[in-house]
Design a protein around this nucleic acid. Structure first.
Lengths: 125, 125
DNA sequence: CAGTATCCTGGGGGATACTG
DNA sequence: CAGTATCCCCCAGGATACTG
């Protein structure tokens, strides 16, 4: 037999479909954008909420999220022109499990920091 | 006023505590390791499940997860020596919201791929 | 088996300047 | 306001070889 039962195939092989997707929508900046976009928000307002991001990187992140169907881009007929970003239904459904992960991290950040200190102390010996 | 109510502080400022943590435990390979480690597993078995990972990167990933309290490392008294990795209670509690995110991605990967194609077609115009 | 040790490369992302 | 356009740097992670 080529693939006997007692020798299971890799579960997370190179072409696992989740990998390229999560690379695109769950990276550092995308996470923050998705969390901020609870309601429609303009470019510079997002930028302000994500203190530390550059225009270039924010633009890239927004394009990527738009391409993956997570957010919508809408041009406002103001002067000067404005652009508003908002979650799509798909993005909203993604946001649920996503925010749960975020909140878990927030709740457990102290505990994790403690574990890191313990580990480093042990390593230092 | 330094911080008036109509000009809220950034919610995801540079030192947001979740950022360095998620960088360490929710990156590409960590995600896969956490998903594989439903039960205690030995080094090379993990490596087989994650086809594509190099020894070096897997070792780094395991060390990082251990340092952050997600997994435990246990040496087996076999010949030659074996090492078994397993989730800690903290890691197990992380795994829950985490796997939900993974499953969402699996369920929606086709839809997302479609959105990407649509976007690219529009862009090509 | 479960790791180190080296070397190397791509691209994510920061800094900065310019524009419709 | 909401972006491009350049330049540059760092390091995650791949390839490969060696080992207690």
């Amino acid at each position: 037999m080529a693939t006997p039962l007692d020798r299971p195939q890799p579960r997370f092989y190179v072409n696992c479909p989740t990998r390229p997707i999560l690379d695109q929508i769950a990276d550092k900046w995308s996470m923050m954008v998705m969390t901020v976009l609870e309601e429609p928000t303009r470019f510079n307002e997002i930028k302000r909420q994500l203190e530390g991001v550059t225009q270039r990187v924010l633009t890239q992140t927004l394009r990527r999220l738009e391409r993956n169907g997570m957010i919508q881009r809408r041009i406002l007929e103001t002067t000067p022109v404005g652009v508003e970003y908002s979650l799509t239904p798909l993005g909203r459904s993604f946001r649920e499990p996503f925010v749960r992960l975020y909140e878990w991290t927030l709740e457990n950040s102290d505990e994790i920091t403690r574990m890191q200190a313990d580990y480093d102390a042990r390593s230092a010996g």
